[in-house]
Design a protein around this nucleic acid. Structure first.
Lengths: 210, 210, 210, 210
DNA sequence: CATGAATGAGAGTTCATTCAT
DNA sequence: GATGAATGAACTCTCATTCAT
């Protein structure tokens, strides 16, 4: 999708997609240090092919992050457009946990990945767009009176990032533990006489730098 | 302190302590894969000494986890004993975030560490004791009418584990972002007409197995 | 031009020529191990094309060496025919340093290339013809009384090969360092009461085998 | 011998020496790209040991070059001190061809090695000392009337570097081909009505930079 | 006991060569 | 015929672990 990437041959494109998909899963499952060879195997290609497409691990991480971010962004826009209220949009976004994981993993959890993505303009662009979307939703939700006025979109983003991290996998999914946690967090955001918060609302801007 | 470890000579004990302390910091800072040699260097001992005390990396991880868990457990007991209400005890526990991090990191975040600790009876014992303590606190808080009745101590543990993970380090600490998130979560637990939760309360028992 | 190479289509021939020319430059500049892909790129063809024409690196090395030797041979013949004295022919040959480099590089400096060329009859034929030419020139120069009688054409060839190797590139070309070295060596060959030489004259024959 | 290298344990020192010796031979025989594993095998150590002592190939190249240069320098000083005339000292130096090879190989022939050594202050220091020694010898030889006045020590260094390069190995050593070439070159330097040289004498200074 | 040297397996990366388009 | 994609072997370098000093 980059300007600098000319159209690939059909089979090459298929391989590329398989690689990114495999990497995405393996990064989510085992962190950004999984052996390249395993990623290649999972994508059913040789290592050489992987390296032809992505000069090094960093390039692959960037590619995965971009794709993930793009999906999340699309999701956020769809939620804002389709849900009747901003609050409903927020609820829907949290519900997407599974799809958000890979990106959140990479973007926020791993030290290494963070450093890499920090310098990637494309990722930065996606993140900015995503924060802009969230800004709008949060503001609208506050106008609706649905969530407390003393939080900013940065606060919401952080809460989201917390619930959406790779679940410890220690809990039986049938137990809906994370769904419950999400509801509890949303309830904490609700517009009601709550405990006063320390500091000042965290904005999207506040999350821009490390 | 293990039964299997006979009393060490004073200097040997000092070495052991330095090693665990160094390992704890480095695990927290750089994950459970930091080179053993670096840990040794940080502890000002040779690798040989490290290996004499801990036969392999797993043993070291277990030792660090045990120590961290022991501190958290002591903390929880102190909170229960010293705070006027169970709710205050909960608030105090969340506030301890910084001290909890290392253990939570190891115990919950890293896939690898999780697998190792899963089979360690000592760690299991600490975890059980900790969950028992939390059970009591949560129950008392519910009796006080401080938190909603439809949550279990497992729900609370999960919420805690979420806020206590290694913070993304992307946010200026002056901004108090994590303190704010903690308050929002606690507010979600408050006894008030909240959104109905899916599933059933998660108990401490529910967290026992993967 | 080989018997085994049937006449190529015009464009194929152009490709072949570009490849050899590119290889020649890159071998001279970066040794006989330059990536095949880079040679292909420099020749503005795909690797596949390169491999269609030259089954492997050795074949390409041979082709470059043959072409270079052919040029040197032509040069030597022209010098012998056109210069008034044999001595002048020798001087002119040394002066050709630049054009000789690529071939000398490949033929004499790189261990690997030497081994490859050793078994190539075409290269051997060129070398033999070249030595024959040099034989004649040296003999004539001795008859002229221009150079000492106690050297053979093999001695002269070795001296030439020394000055003609890839210059260390450490010296400013404006300084004429290699031109000066060439003159000094030629002066050493001059017919004058010189230091007696050890051993016996080296002939062209003597250089035939490794 | 570096200030930064604390005294090694006896066995470690022995290994280190074996490694440098092995590397020296293999570099001379097969260029600066020989597989590290082969060097290790030749030195009868594991690769790990090699890498513990020399963090990467460049460090090893530097070590070999330093050692070689040091020997050459000692040799030059001894020659200047022990030989009756400066001319004899020059003759003796050229005769050392075999011992000079490795250093000359590394320092002057391989593009790669040159780049590495260019930035190494120790190597630079050795080279400067060596050039100073040669300066003195050449000047003395000119005062003796033994060599022509229109050459500088840089000219002599270049001539030396030419004869001392790795001999093509194509010639039977019994034939004394290189000894003969050396004599021819020395004869070219002799003080006699010779061909006028182009440019101006090359000094040691002139060789300092690329 | 402590130390740090040595080992060797394995991960990342490059490139010659083959082959589908 | 030409192209550039894919493969896999080879090489460099790192690090857990063992062992001589």
């Amino acid at each position: 999708m980059t300007a600098s990437e000319t159209r690939l041959r059909a089979d090459a494109q298929r391989n590329r997609d398989q690689i990114v998909a495999a990497a995405r899963e393996m990064f989510a499952a085992a962190g950004p240090d999984v052996p390249m060879e395993e990623i290649a195997r999972a994508a059913a290609v040789g290592v050489g092919t992987l390296y032809r497409r992505f000069p090094d691990r960093e390039a692959l991480i960037r590619a995965v992050a971009r794709e993930s971010f793009a999906e999340v962004l699309a999701d956020a826009r769809a939620a804002a457009a389709e849900e009747p209220t901003a609050w409903d949009a927020l609820v829907r976004l949290v519900g997407r946990s599974h799809q958000l994981q890979a990106s959140v993993q990479l973007a926020l959890v791993s030290e290494r990945a963070r450093n890499i993505l920090e310098d990637d303009p494309q990722t930065a662009a996606f993140r900015d767009a995503l924060m802009a979307e969230l800004d709008a939703i949060v503001e609208a939700a506050q106008a609706e009176g649905a969530i407390r006025a003393d939080v900013g979109s940065g606060d919401v983003a952080i809460l989201f990032s917390l619930v959406l991290r790779q679940p410890p996998a220690v809990v039986d999914p049938e137990m809906l533990a994370f769904e419950r946690a999400a509801v509890l967090m949303l309830d904490g955001l609700r517009s009601r006489p709550g405990t006063p918060l320390p500091g000042r609302p965290i904005t999207g801007e506040d999350l821009r730098f490390g």
